[in-house]
């Protein structure tokens, strides 16, 4: 028994490899649906504004998380698909913990005209050390190739 006589031969323990079959459909939801259908046809974002506290959400939401009130249709608005880089990092590892062939620069971008930020891959004009505060613009896939997911945004490119 394991607990009275511990295994001491490292070749002894048996294991087998398994995986989970776990596939899902992720529904975009009422708010997400509008957002994703919008970016299929437009190079801009939709945002929604809470009537009570004035917080502008992008991606838009059906309700305000602070006030817990619904956001009506008339408080939705179009905002440009651009913003300012607040934070950034250069990711060197993939999910297996191995080096990425091409390191990715990921930024947290404050979206213009909103109180929200989005994660995005950053592309800059030149090799900069500090990307904080640069303005970036979303680069979308060609319209006919869009599928209505976040992947329609290829990356955020430095403006100007």
């Amino acid at each position: 028994m394991t607990y009275l006589e511990k295994q001491s031969n490292p070749l002894d323990p048996v294991h087998f490899r398994g995986n989970l079959q776990a596939d899902y459909l992720y529904t975009s939801g009422a708010a997400g649906d509008k957002f994703f259908k919008h970016i299929m046809e437009n190079d801009s974002f939709l945002a929604s504004e809470c009537e009570e506290c004035g917080t502008v959400f992008c991606p838009p939401r059906l309700y305000c998380e602070d006030c817990f009130v619904e956001i009506p249709d008339e408080k939705w608005k179009e905002v440009p698909a651009k913003g300012t880089v607040r934070l950034f990092t250069t990711a060197m590892l993939n999910t297996f913990g191995e080096p990425l062939e091409v390191p990715k620069i990921i930024g947290l971008i404050d979206i213009e005209g909103t109180d929200s930020s989005m994660l995005g891959i950053l592309k800059t004009k030149d090799q900069k050390q500090d990307l904080t505060g640069i303005t970036v613009e979303a680069v979308f896939r060609p319209t006919q190739e869009r599928e209505g997911t976040l992947k329609d945004i290829l990356y955020f490119n430095e403006s100007g």
Partner: peptide, 21 residues
């Protein structure tokens, strides 16, 4: 259709969020 590549070895490790924070 995937952005960039279909290579699963290109998925960034989620610890990038700790880098940002």
């Amino acid at each position: 259709p995937l952005v960039g590549s279909t290579d699963e070895k290109e998925r960034v490790h989620p610890y990038f969020l700790a880098g940002l924070e």
